[in-house]
Amino acid sequence: MDPIVEVVALLLGFLGWVMVGIALPNRYWKTSTVDGNVITTSTIYENLWMSCATDSTGVHNCREFPSLLALNGYIQASRALMIASIVFGTFGLVAALVGMQCSKAGGENYVLKGRIAGTGGVLFILQGLCTMISVSWYAFNITQDFFDPFYPGTKFEIGEGLYIGWCSAVLAIAGGSCLTCSFHYNMKIARGTAYSHAPSRSVAASTYGRNAYV
């Protein structure tokens, strides 16, 4: 596997993993501004864990969602997907570090190290997919309520936390794809090289004949 591709893929996966950690606790997954006079103008914003409100004077209050079972299904699913994304990314980073050629971990067995790195690439892809599904599903519900003329509640808009999540998903998928594709490409080259150096049966037979009867 090309060491440069490994390093680039590791950096992309690491950045994606860090951005997941930033997006998950970010409070601005969806925002709504209620216009009024100087005192009554307020901003409401929510994420997967709490709902907050702040007024024009800078005073803000937050309350955590009181019950997990009382939440909408997409919020529960988004929580699970984001946590799974962090877990996949953590194991992906460990596998990528162990599988890199410049790493001393795993010994000198480069075939095994390549397979470990390829596994890390798959884990990065899973991380990106979990993040992408979570933030896209959350954004879909925001836009669905926003454009529904009969929706009675507060209409929110997409917040910065979702954009961070989308960027994280793209980076993780790109890094995982680089690791996985590079691993498969190098395995094909290795197999082709092994077959090209293997002696044919006719050559082996002729050599045996010369050794036996000459």
Score class of each variant (00 low, 15 high):
residue 37 N to K: 04
residue 123 L to P: 05
residue 108 E to W: 10
residue 73 G to Q: 10
residue 25 P to G: 09
residue 18 V to A: 14
residue 18 V to N: 07
residue 189 I to Q: 14
residue 91 F to M: 08
residue 21 G to P: 08
residue 43 T to P: 05
residue 24 L to I: 11
residue 102 C to H: 06
residue 207 T to Q: 15
residue 144 Q to L: 09
residue 128 G to H: 14
residue 142 I to Q: 06
residue 174 A to M: 10
residue 87 V to G: 11
residue 54 T to K: 13
residue 37 N to P: 04
residue 205 A to F: 10
residue 5 V to M: 12
residue 33 T to F: 08
residue 94 V to E: 06
residue 26 N to C: 00
residue 87 V to N: 07
residue 163 Y to P: 00
residue 68 L to W: 12
residue 134 S to V: 04
residue 157 E to F: 01
residue 134 S to L: 02
residue 165 G to N: 06
residue 59 V to T: 02
residue 101 Q to L: 14
residue 35 D to Y: 13
residue 83 I to L: 09
residue 12 L to A: 13
residue 18 V to F: 08
residue 44 I to K: 06
residue 17 W to T: 07
residue 5 V to I: 15
residue 172 A to L: 08
residue 60 H to F: 07
residue 113 K to D: 10
residue 78 S to T: 04
residue 193 T to F: 00
residue 105 A to S: 11
residue 22 I to H: 01
residue 34 V to I: 15
residue 112 L to S: 11
residue 209 G to V: 09
residue 210 R to I: 13
residue 9 A to E: 11
residue 209 G to L: 09
residue 19 M to T: 11
residue 173 I to R: 07
residue 108 E to F: 14
residue 132 M to R: 10
residue 79 R to I: 11
residue 70 A to Y: 09
residue 87 V to H: 06
residue 209 G to R: 15
residue 78 S to I: 04
residue 8 V to K: 03
residue 182 S to F: 05
residue 120 G to I: 08
residue 195 Y to T: 07
residue 197 H to F: 02
residue 114 G to L: 05
residue 160 E to T: 11
residue 199 P to Q: 05
residue 22 I to L: 10
residue 186 N to P: 01
residue 135 V to D: 00
residue 202 S to W: 03
residue 152 P to R: 12
residue 83 I to P: 02
residue 40 T to F: 04
residue 18 V to S: 02
residue 205 A to T: 10
residue 2 D to M: 04
residue 80 A to C: 03
residue 24 L to P: 01
residue 207 T to Y: 05
residue 83 I to W: 07
residue 118 G to L: 08
residue 206 S to M: 10
residue 140 F to C: 03
residue 193 T to S: 12
residue 179 L to T: 02
residue 86 I to K: 03
residue 146 F to N: 00
residue 25 P to W: 11
residue 78 S to E: 07
residue 55 D to F: 02
residue 149 P to Y: 13
residue 55 D to V: 00
residue 86 I to R: 03
residue 7 V to R: 09
residue 174 A to L: 15
residue 82 M to D: 09
residue 76 Q to F: 01
residue 77 A to H: 00
residue 160 E to W: 04
residue 182 S to R: 05
residue 197 H to N: 11
residue 127 Q to V: 01
residue 118 G to M: 13
residue 85 S to R: 08
residue 148 D to C: 02
residue 102 C to L: 08
residue 52 C to N: 10
residue 155 K to C: 05
residue 96 A to D: 00
residue 85 S to F: 05
residue 184 H to Q: 03
residue 72 N to E: 13
residue 154 T to H: 02
residue 94 V to A: 13
residue 119 T to Y: 13
residue 131 T to A: 14
residue 102 C to W: 10
residue 80 A to P: 01
residue 126 L to G: 14
residue 8 V to A: 13
residue 51 S to Y: 08
residue 115 R to F: 07
residue 171 L to D: 00
residue 165 G to C: 06
residue 70 A to C: 08
